[in-house]
Design a binder for these strands. Structure first.
Lengths: 342, 342
DNA sequence: CCCGTTACTGTAAACGTTTACAGTGACTCC
DNA sequence: GGAGTCACTGTAAACGTTTACAGTAACGGG
């Protein structure tokens, strides 16, 4: 490995001068600078990040701790974080697959001294537990329910989104709504469920308007849940899956049973994954800008590091209702082409 | 920040002893060990990764450089890499969104001294260009065409997979096949296209059996391409989209035009993304185990670092033909439930 | 009683940088 | 011509670890 010392010797200057050239700070004579640069490229030198980090006390890296990595959700999230972080010249250290809180804490410990800040998304189980403690490192929590004790968090307006969807369904005349819920103890799922209850309440509908069946955010669980709902009495006239993957499963089940969507049963999802508009029928869903959420989390961490205006508190990522045809969008009955192609 | 020196002072020992406790190497008296551990947790000490890296000359990190981060493909890839890497106690540094070769090289330079090895996937354009040079760092290239000059690479059996699919289509009686190709200069797409030609040749069919329309791996491009194919004369009796996302777009277009799948036109995809089995009809496709590919790449890099048996060369990830109903799977005509639920 | 061994612990030199501080000429100005 | 300023460069001390080497005390054997 070739070091700053080799370059200095070869160029006939001190290591301080080489360092100055590479941090293009302070005054270095143009000739010297040129010479050093030349020697450096000839020798194939580039500064050693670790050594630099040790002395400057910044790693130029932020850590991202995720519970899991299945599905488009996480790739979008990483994409958002990566983008924001790279824009400020930072690196991204990713650690995923943390089944419980202990693993998250250990991942955080392992990252000590390797990152300047952290973005953490907790695994489903212990969401609202003991607040995360990261020593001096800026930390922002991602997802889950708002207001659980930590200073910084970016969360989705799950509750508002679900509420808006239920109101939409009710406005279409549905008074018996089947909801395919998320995993137990997943607080995003919990929040969406609360939103459903809010919406029902808004409409003056009671508990009997709601048929809740558990799912786990997978297509398979949506399939099973929808099949179960078809046997319910009274049978719901609308199915609201708390994410799009489960809605896809539900559509598949309904099709297998010969039930027409939306004529017989309306179906709605949550997330608006890219293919939602290409489904049959195109899926009415609640849009969430996941990569924006990741970007915001990263930006927040960076702001505590002195990049950009600093702020604190819980920030909420809004949702949008995307009305397509799976709930019988009035006025869009004829076969339409996906809006991204219009 | 609390350092090894603080712990040493507080515990009344030297920093060497504290270090020894944390690397649980060599002999340390049980009492001393206990005391140090106690002080360390009381003070909330954990070793500083950067400092450790500097002296040990290993960062316990491997770098992953990706062209992009859109879609499930990349999250699966990261998942595989992350898993393999964590199993050996390594960290994962991710850098994505590299539009061209220069950006890849700069990302590699930025990672110098921060990682012990690299997994690199090149952006679509300059795939087969100048081989990657990483100095002393072990490097494995991911995806693209095999045999382009680098020592280590993990690639998908794109060609075999596409060939198998074409043979399947031909065996079903199709002699006019529309292929929705991938982006220009994407070598995975190129390889799949070569496989298509192989398959056609196997069947003794000429160039006129093939209708090629360009796509870019997105649902939208699949939609457009399928629509274009419907206007071709003679019209193909089967559409083979070179990935599942485009197949989904194609299904959507066919539906909009009132064409029945598979009765009027067969549709096939490539990748076998999770929801392929939940589509209408369930999609016949070529299965690729993406996360396994990522894991293999990581394992290969790690092997050069002395973890596990070492090997070199180009490794090929096999594909499997998944016959479902979108091409008229004989004997599976009645509505079936997805196989993951059976 | 001395020596060798064992079991533990401390000292100090690295690792490759950055940066405060201290030079060193050359030039300007009075 | 001396002082002051300026532009540039070098010296050396950090940053928080690991680890070779040396040191110490206790103990057993001769």
């Amino acid at each position: 490995m070739i070091t700053i010392r080799d370059v200095a010797r070869e160029a006939g200057v001190s290591i301080a001068t080489v360092s100055r050239v590479f941090n293009n700070a302070e005054a270095v004579a143009t000739d010297t600078r040129r010479e050093v640069r030349a020697v450096a490229t000839r020798l194939g030198y580039s500064p050693h990040g670790t050594a630099r980090s040790l002395i400057t006390r910044r790693t130029a890296t932020i850590g991202l701790i995720l519970p899991d990595l299945y599905g488009e959700f996480f790739s979008e999230l990483i994409r958002g974080v990566d983008h924001a972080v790279r824009a400020q010249g930072y690196h991204l250290l990713v650690s995923s697959s943390h089944a419980d809180r202990a693993e998250v804490d250990s991942a955080m410990a392992l990252m000590r001294g390797r990152v300047d800040g952290l973005v953490v998304m907790l695994p489903e189980r212990q969401q609202a537990q003991v607040p995360l403690v990261s020593g001096r490192l800026p930390l922002v929590r991602l997802g889950g329910a708002p207001h659980n004790g930590d200073a910084d968090a970016i969360v989705v307006a799950n509750r508002d989104g679900a509420r808006a969807m239920v109101r939409h369904l009710v406005s279409l005349g549905h008074t018996r709504i089947g909801v395919i819920a998320g995993a137990d103890a997943n607080s995003d799922a919990d929040e969406r469920m609360s939103g459903v209850r809010d919406g029902l309440e808004d409409a003056g509908l009671g508990e009997d308007a709601l048929l809740r069946v558990a799912g786990d955010f997978s297509e398979a669980s949506g399939f099973r849940a929808a099949r179960e709902m078809l046997r319910a009495d009274p049978r719901p006239t609308a199915i609201f899956a708390l994410n799009d993957a489960m809605a896809i499963g539900a559509l598949s089940a309904l099709r297998a049973e010969g039930v027409n969507v939306p004529a017989d049963i309306a179906v709605a999802g949550f997330d608006d994954i890219p293919m939602a508009q290409f489904l049959d029928p195109p899926l009415t869903t609640v849009r969430v800008d996941i990569s924006a959420m990741g970007a915001r989390a990263a930006t927040r961490v960076l702001s505590h590091l002195g990049n950009g205006p600093s702020g604190s508190g819980v920030e909420i990522v809004p949702t949008t209702l995307m009305v397509r045809r799976s709930c019988g969008n009035p006025g869009a009955w004829s076969p339409t082409i996906p809006e991204s192609l219009a």
